[in-house]
Nucleic acid binder design. Structure first.
Length: 326
DNA sequence: ATAGGCAACCGCCACT
DNA sequence: ACAGTGGCGGTTGCCT
């Protein structure tokens, strides 16, 4: 058993000629830095080069990495941090190695254009995936069997995870830490990164005109903060629209443009996120958790929780309790 | 588990 | 002509 857990926490990052330094850095920052506060079971970290000799990285750097393919086959988590170009061929050897690692039980993760490597390896057929918004069209055109999710920061299919552009790699890495170590540890890692532990909304919010209007987006974020701070209360779209001084119709439109989802959907997402955290970090009853997160009751909590996280709240709590003590 | 009521959502279009 | 707004009404989906 101990052996299985150890394997699960062995992280390997793929390095290649033309390495994307930023995406690589994300993986290192989350999984490679020592975290004594997380206990002795924290991840081990290896960089495995897929090409021989001295390699180049973006920014005019060159490097050598000392991992080997054996590290890959014993890994629990394999990260592909971008790729040297979405039109660059993926070596058959790399595809084969990834498939083997996957078959041996590793979770395979892509950041940004790394999704094209996973796709080439056939790991994404008939599964959900996402990537940087600039590459969404190419991804679905070249790989029609992939269920491309244009408006998510990351996807999690259990054994295969993909993330949207650049900094969304931080979101997926934090998500993995949350899955493996729970919300508390994930939050402490996020704090060290000076990063939100969970960002709301999809990537659509970053595609729309960057800052449509300084004043407006300011007032909007005030409303969003207000909702988050009073998540147990109930909200009416009409009132929220009045707060930012626009009609409900325009409010809907602007809300969608800024957060990537309609108002109620966003609010519900926040409620479920809160309930999710409380299930882990407290021993409160489902009634209390529903009330504290603004859901209308335990039926509602159970229904939405299951739809969102694919497990019921009771089962989730049980599962977490097992993991927290193991 | 299902039914009805009511708010949210969103396409359409006329109006600034 | 053009971009953004907001009212209307049909559909969707949440809650009881």
């Amino acid at each position: 058993m101990q052996h299985l857990i150890d394997k699960r926490r062995r992280v390997v990052v793929i390095a290649y000629d033309g390495l994307c330094t930023f995406e690589y850095g994300i993986a290192y920052e989350v999984f490679g830095l020592p975290r004594p506060e997380a206990g002795p079971d924290w991840y081990s970290f290896k960089t495995v080069p897929v090409e021989a000799g001295e390699l180049r990285a973006s920014g005019g750097l060159s490097f050598k990495a000392n991992g080997t393919l054996n590290d890959l086959y014993n890994a629990g988590l394999v990260i592909v941090p971008g790729w040297r170009g979405i039109d660059q061929p993926v070596p058959g050897e790399l595809c084969e190695s990834l498939r083997r690692a996957h078959k041996a039980g590793a979770r395979i993760v892509s950041i940004c254009s790394g999704v094209f490597v996973l796709a080439a390896a056939g790991l994404l057929d008939n599964r959900r995936a996402t990537t940087h918004w600039r590459f969404l069209r190419s991804l679905s055109e070249r790989h029609p069997t992939i269920k491309v999710e244009p408006n998510l920061l990351y996807t999690d299919e259990g054994d295969v995870l993909t993330s949207a552009g650049s900094s969304a790699g931080i979101d997926v890495c934090l998500h993995i830490v949350r899955t493996d170590f729970g919300t508390k540890i994930a939050n402490s890692v996020a704090r060290r990164l000076v990063m939100h532990s969970h960002r709301s909304g999809g990537q659509a919010q970053f595609i729309e005109q960057p800052v449509p209007n300084e004043h407006e987006s300011h007032r909007f974020s005030a409303v969003l903060d207000c909702i988050r701070a009073n998540i147990a209360a109930s909200f009416e779209i009409e009132e929220l629209a009045a707060q930012v001084g626009m009609s409900t119709r325009t409010f809907h439109r602007r809300f969608l443009a800024i957060t990537g989802m309609p108002p109620l959907k966003w609010i519900n997402e926040e409620r479920l996120r809160r309930a999710h955290d409380l299930l882990e970090t407290s021993t409160a009853s489902l009634e209390d958790i529903a009330a504290a997160s603004g859901l209308s009751g335990t039926e509602s909590l159970r229904y939405h929780f299951r739809r969102r996280f694919r497990v019921g709240p009771d089962e989730y709590r049980k599962r977490f309790a097992w993991r927290a003590t193991s």
